[in-house]
Amino acid sequence: MPPLSPASVVTTLRAAGCVFAEDEARLILSTARTPDELAAMVDRRVAGLPLEHVVGWAEFSGLRIAVEPGVFVPRRRTEFLVEQALAHAPDASVVVDLCCGSGAVGAALAAVLGRVELHAADIDPAAVRCARRNVVPYGGQVHAGDLFTALPDALRGRVDILAANVPYVPTGEVGLLPAEARDHEPLVALDGGTDGLAILREVATGAPDWLAPGGCLLVETSERQLPAAVEAFTRGGLETRSAYSEELYANVVIGVRAVGAVRS
Rank of each mutant, 00 (worst) to 15 (best):
R132Y: 03
V135N: 08
G101S: 08
V42A: 09
R76N: 03
P152Q: 09
A85T: 05
D91A: 09
G193C: 11
P137T: 02
V82T: 14
A232V: 01
A144K: 08
D153W: 06
E59I: 02
A126R: 13
V54P: 09
V259N: 10
A16N: 15
G70A: 12
P167H: 11
E185I: 01
E247C: 03
Q84K: 14
G196F: 10
D23T: 02
S93N: 11
R158L: 08
V10C: 10
A104K: 14
V73F: 12
M41T: 00
V256E: 06
R45F: 06
T78E: 07
E223R: 10
E37I: 00
V71W: 06
A15L: 15
E185P: 00
A92P: 04
I28E: 03
R75P: 02
R45H: 05
Y168P: 00
Q141F: 07
A127S: 14
A258Y: 06
P2N: 08
S8Q: 15
A92G: 07
F60S: 05
L98V: 04
V71E: 04
A121P: 03
R26C: 01
P3W: 13
P186M: 15
R115I: 04
L177A: 07
T78D: 03
G114W: 09
R75C: 04
V253F: 10
T234P: 06
A207F: 05
F20R: 12
H184R: 12
R235I: 00
E37T: 01
A198P: 00
L27D: 04
A85R: 12
A212K: 13
R133K: 13
G157C: 14
P178S: 11
G139K: 15
L151T: 00
G62P: 12
V188L: 15
Y249G: 03
W210F: 02
L98T: 01
T31L: 13
D36L: 12
H143P: 00
A110C: 09
A66L: 05
E185L: 13
E173Y: 01
F60K: 12
P69D: 05
E220R: 04
A39D: 02
A131G: 06
E239I: 09
V96K: 11
L118H: 07
R76Y: 05
Y138W: 15
T171V: 10
A212S: 08
L109F: 11
G215D: 04
L63P: 02
V169L: 14
P74S: 14
V166E: 13
G192W: 11
D91Y: 07
V256T: 04
V54K: 15
A179I: 02
S61M: 13
V135K: 14
V128E: 10
L38Q: 02
P35L: 11
R64W: 01
D209C: 08
G48Q: 12
G192T: 05
L155A: 02
A258R: 10
F148D: 06
L63D: 01
D43N: 13
R44T: 01
S245V: 05
D153L: 08
E202N: 07
V169T: 06
V203S: 08
V136K: 14
R133G: 01
I28Y: 01
A16T: 05
V174N: 08
Y244E: 01
V112Q: 14
A7N: 07
E202D: 08
